[in-house]
Amino acid sequence: MPGVHDRGGWPTDEMIDRSDHIWTDWEYKTHALVGALRFRELMNTDELRRGIEAIPSEDYEASSYYERWSRSLETILTEKGVLSTEEIDTKVKELEGRWESDS
């Protein structure tokens, strides 16, 4: 059975939704971060792919495109010891606190 990413030929009656969503800032940043890490030779396209393709099926299908990128980014960076999960958790709380006090 093919992996969840390997979708060519899977039967579906779904029409193609041709509307484009407006990119949000975090999506630009996610894409740009991968670009900057590529420039620093800390991450390449194949690693990005591996991180995306390793996402469990249900999560893969429930995630948006850049949510998958983001998850892969975290996988690769934590694997390499560039960042730790705990550091990211802490930073998320810090950002939430900052947004809270600004709003």
């Binding site: 996610t30 971060l33 998320v92």
Partner: peptide
């Protein structure tokens, strides 16, 4: 996920 991206950034 978006928050974690911004945190990593």
């Amino acid at each position: 996920r978006a928050k974690r991206s911004l945190a990593m950034h």
